[in-house]
Structures are given as structure tokens and as C-alpha cells.
Amino acid sequence: MTASKTLNVGDKAPDFHLPDAEGRMISLSDYRGVPVVVYFYPKDDTPGCTAEACAFRDQYEDFKQVGAEVIGISSDAPDRHARFAGKHRLPFVLLSDQDGAVRKAYGVAATFGILPGRVTFVIDRDGVIGHIFSSQFRATRHVSEAIDVLGRLA
């Protein structure tokens, strides 16, 4: 992983290799040719993160209709992701960034210096960032922002 930097719209999204809830290694490059929404969130089973994940779940078909995939990333361990995804019937991939290297590569800063940031990146078919939305406290807004951008990119 590269050092932390500020990413901007038009930048190439850093590739990553992280375990999913079953321990399989997943890379951003596995999705080349498909728009991807990568959302970083603080922690499984917290109120804001659960609302955000369930909002992505509830509108998942809208993402599929435009050919996009959704990936959630937090520092939670794969087994915790498995419980969280099962409990809330999440149809998309959750990845475990336990050492924070991917969060750092994407420049996702902590809120108030302590709470892991909540930032969503819309990445186009070529791996280029098309939109960035950051809001710790408007968790469900990440979903509508991503859908709006994907609609314009389609």
C-alpha cells in the first residue's frame, strides 16, 4: 500500500487485497470493467454503520441495475463481518482492513482524531475515482450520493 494522500476525482483508485467475511482475498482489480462503490465505515453493528449498510442493502438492486458493485470496508475481523452480514442480510462484500493500510492509502482520516472516517468512493469501470462523499453523521446519504453519480456515469 502507498502512503496516505488525498485522493481526488480523476485519480486512479489504489488497488487493495483484503479478506472478505469468508477469508477469501478480494482485490479492487477483480472488478475492473465494472463500476464499484467502495465505502469505508467505522464499525459493524453500530447504529450509523448498521443504518448505512441496510440502506445499501435496501437499494442494492438499484446498483445492480446500473451494473455496479458495492464493497464495504472497515477494520472489523472477517468473522465479525460474517455475523454482521448474516444478521442484516447484506448482499454485498464486506472487507477487513484490520491494519488500516487501505484506509490510509485512500486518505480516509479519523473524525475528531479517533473515530474511523466514513467516506464513499464511486470508481468507474477503468478504476478511476468519479466521486467522493465524506460525512460521518449522514450515513445513509452515502447511498443516495452513489446512486446519483452512477446514474450520471451510465
Rank of each mutant, 00 (worst) to 15 (best):
M1I: 10
T2V: 12
A3R: 11
A3G: 15
A3W: 07
S4R: 14
K5H: 09
T6M: 07
T6P: 02
L7H: 05
N8P: 04
V9L: 08
D11Y: 11
D11E: 04
D11N: 14
P14L: 13
P14N: 07
D15E: 02
F16Q: 11
D20L: 06
E22M: 11
E22G: 10
I26G: 09
P35R: 07
V37H: 00
V38I: 15
K43L: 09
G48V: 11
T50S: 07
T50D: 10
T50R: 09
A51M: 14
E52M: 05
E52T: 02
A53S: 13
A53W: 03
F56D: 11
D58S: 07
Q59R: 15
E61P: 02
D62P: 00
F63T: 09
K64C: 01
Q65V: 05
G67H: 08
A68V: 10
E69T: 11
I71H: 07
S74C: 01
S75N: 08
D79S: 08
H81P: 02
A82D: 12
R83G: 05
F84P: 05
A85C: 12
A85E: 05
G86M: 05
G86N: 12
H88D: 04
H88I: 01
R89Y: 01
P91W: 03
F92C: 06
F92L: 06
V93E: 05
V93N: 01
L95E: 06
L95T: 09
S96Y: 02
D97H: 04
D99I: 00
A101D: 14
A101V: 05
A109F: 01
A110P: 08
T111V: 13
G113W: 03
G117Y: 03
R118Q: 08
F121P: 07
V122H: 02
V122A: 00
I123H: 05
I123W: 03
I129C: 08
I129L: 10
S134Y: 02
S134H: 08
S134L: 02
S135F: 03
Q136R: 13
R138H: 12
A139L: 01
T140Y: 06
T140V: 15
R141S: 15
V143T: 15
E145C: 10
A146P: 11
D148W: 03
L150C: 13
A154M: 15
A154L: 13
